[in-house]
């Protein structure tokens, strides 16, 4: 059995850490939307202490630091747990990479405070946050019972090219998240992000629909990922419209208004989820679809996992 290394505790902890990281992304988005990034002028301490008065913008900024500290501790535990229990070398590397990412993320966060939110460092902080979240989602997937079980692998027909489309979708969503971060941190105007919002559905929806193609009907989990991606994209587009509307409607308000904060933070969080689902689709597509060998095996002819496959 391929799932002999399945560890339910490790998997549950990986899922928890990924969920906590999504919470961390929400906390970070709240800091930006409330313009609280510099409410605490010092780093790594906050007002020279571990627990400053949690008032106004300090609540958001120090709250973000606390959630991030917890995420760092969880990631250390996860990386050590993986290194001790996992037989797959690639999993151990992934665990340590996630730890390196969260450390780098903490340093980037410190740089944003020390150097008064340099726009491109803030964008890098946002981008690395997305990459870190995706690495934890991948760890959660790779430690699942489903991933480690003997799955029926379907021959990849390349018609439709779901793998390539899924990879393109993940890349385009990531770029779109970067453009959104660049707008939020005033490195760029909103136009690139708006253009991206027009392009993204034309790349993502074909990936989502082709994963539900009849050719891959027996590929476990693939169609579900495609459906999830489609739905989360619809929600994200609606939230993007709402965030833009709320921003325009409250642009003369003396402070960030709750309606703008709500829609913008929701848009940021669902953006991260959209990327995570696209990454899931990529991973599942490479897991349950076999390599293209049309000269030997006809498309959609099932075979068993383990004959050919990735290191994970």
């Amino acid at each position: 059995m391929k799932n002999s290394s399945y560890n339910p505790g490790l998997h549950r902890f990986a899922v928890f850490t990924a969920c906590w990281t999504l919470f961390l992304l929400v906390a970070g988005a709240l800091v930006t939307s409330n313009d609280a990034g510099l409410a605490v002028p010092d780093w790594p301490l906050s007002y020279g202490s571990l627990m400053p008065p949690m008032v106004g913008g300090i609540f958001y900024e120090h709250g973000h630091r606390m959630v991030a500290t917890a995420a760092g501790i969880f990631t250390i535990i996860l990386a050590v747990w993986i290194s001790r229990r996992e037989t797959r070398a690639s999993m151990r590397r992934l665990g340590w990479s996630a730890l390196a990412a969260v450390v780098a993320q903490g340093i980037l966060g410190g740089i944003t405070v020390k150097f008064f939110l340099p726009p491109w460092v803030s964008v890098a902080h946002a981008a690395l946050a997305q990459a870190f979240f995706c690495s934890l989602v991948a760890i959660a997937l790779f430690t699942s019972k489903w991933w480690q079980s003997e799955l029926q692998v379907v021959r990849y027909s390349a018609h439709p090219p779901v793998r390539e489309r899924a990879v393109a979708a993940a890349i385009v969503i990531f770029i779109q998240l970067l453009l959104g971060a660049a707008y939020r941190h005033q490195a760029l105007g909103i136009l690139p992000h708006l253009i991206g919002a027009v392009i993204v559905p034309f790349v993502v929806l074909p990936a989502a629909f082709s994963s539900r193609d009849r050719a891959y009907g027996s590929a476990s989990g693939l169609a579900r990922c495609g459906t999830m991606l489609k739905h989360v994209l619809y929600v994200q587009l609606a939230l993007g419209g709402a965030a833009l509307w709320s921003r325009l409607a409250t642009q003369h308000a003396p402070q960030p208004m709750p309606v703008m904060v709500f829609f913008t933070v929701a848009h940021t969080a669902v953006g991260a989820l959209t990327l995570a689902v696209a990454v899931l689709l990529v991973l599942v597509a490479f897991r349950v679809l076999g390599p293209v060998r049309p000269e030997k095996v006809a498309a959609s002819q099932p075979r068993m996992a383990g004959q050919e496959g990735g290191a994970l």
Binding site: N34, D35, A36, G37, L38, A39, V55, G56, G57, I58, E61, P254, Q255, P256
Partner: peptide, 10 residues
């Protein structure tokens, strides 16, 4: 000049 603790202060 702003106060990031109280975002209305400008």
């Amino acid at each position: 000049v702003k106060c990031n603790v109280h975002p209305w202060m400008k």
